[in-house]
Design a protein around this nucleic acid. Structure first.
Length: 256
DNA sequence: ATGGTCGGCAACCGA
């Protein structure tokens, strides 16, 4: 099973890129974030034409998640377990015997702000979510834009960026607490190198050419599932296109 | 170099 995650920064603006990527890479599952489209305007026809099933939940202007799969998508539930549910940031579904959880973790604005506190609380609630709905022995793959870089090698300038809303000990501990429920960082299992990023800020001049990036997009798997992973890679090809997202896809293959 | 660029959507917000 090949599964991918991609923050598309508007599905409609990036529709051609996403369709082309799906057509060429043929993942069994693609999870996307920041679709930025209301459900009534979701561009589903293009994906149906490729033979993909899909579920989605969006809102006006911001957020939005979707899951595309070759197989049946079952037991779909959007959002966390209590208010605010944030249905446009989280979805779980069962696909081919694997539980897929697609999340768009709040970015947090700046340390000390209400949005930052919300981000920390959100990660805390996500830990409870996994405790409630799954067992560590289940095959669970948790993917998405986590808006946290875990280690120094996951950002281009750790000393300059330390304290950033996506790179400080507090958010790292919050994400670590979720991971400690029972997840393995599949990319890191296969690649110990630095300078392996999935996000480059549009505002950073020459950010991509100088590789001034962050690894914010993850594929996590429960231990039994991670043991079956054959590989994991970041696909930078979409960043070479005319209208790239600021993120790029991360892909993992499992021998199941 | 205390900046910069996107997308959505109609003035700024979010990233």
């Amino acid at each position: 099973m090949k599964i991918a995650t991609f923050n598309v920064n508007s599905l409609r603006a990036r529709l051609g890129i996403v369709i082309d990527w799906l057509d060429k890479n043929e993942p069994d599952v693609l999870c996307v974030q920041e679709t930025k489209v209301q459900d009534k305007d979701f561009p589903g026809e293009a994906f149906a034409g490729l033979g993909y099933n899909f579920v989605y939940r969006g809102q006006k202007s911001y957020n939005g998640v979707a899951v595309f799969a070759k197989g049946e998508i079952e037991d779909v539930v959007f959002g966390l377990d209590d208010e605010p549910y944030d249905e446009a940031r989280l979805v779980r579904a069962k696909i081919g015997g694997v539980w897929v959880v697609n999340s768009y973790v709040p970015q947090g604005f700046e340390v000390g702000s209400e949005k930052y506190e919300y981000k920390l609380e959100w990660l805390g609630r996500l830990r409870e979510y996994f405790e409630k709905h799954f067992k560590q022995s289940d095959k669970v793959v948790w993917v998405g834009d986590f808006n946290v870089a875990m280690e120094d090698i996951d950002v281009y300038d750790p000393d300059g960026l330390r304290g950033h809303v996506c790179f400080n000990e507090q958010v790292q501990e919050a994400l670590r607490a979720v991971m400690d429920w029972g997840f393995v960082d599949v990319f890191r299992e296969h690649c110990k190198d630095g300078e392996q990023y999935s996000f480059w800020d549009y505002r950073m001049r020459g950010g991509l050419s100088r590789n001034r990036g962050w690894r914010l997009d993850y594929i996590m798997a429960t231990k039994s599932l991670a043991q079956s992973s054959k590989g994991c890679y970041i696909d930078k090809r979409p960043r070479m296109l005319v209208k790239p997202s600021d993120h790029t896809p991360v892909v993992a293959e499992f021998d199941i």
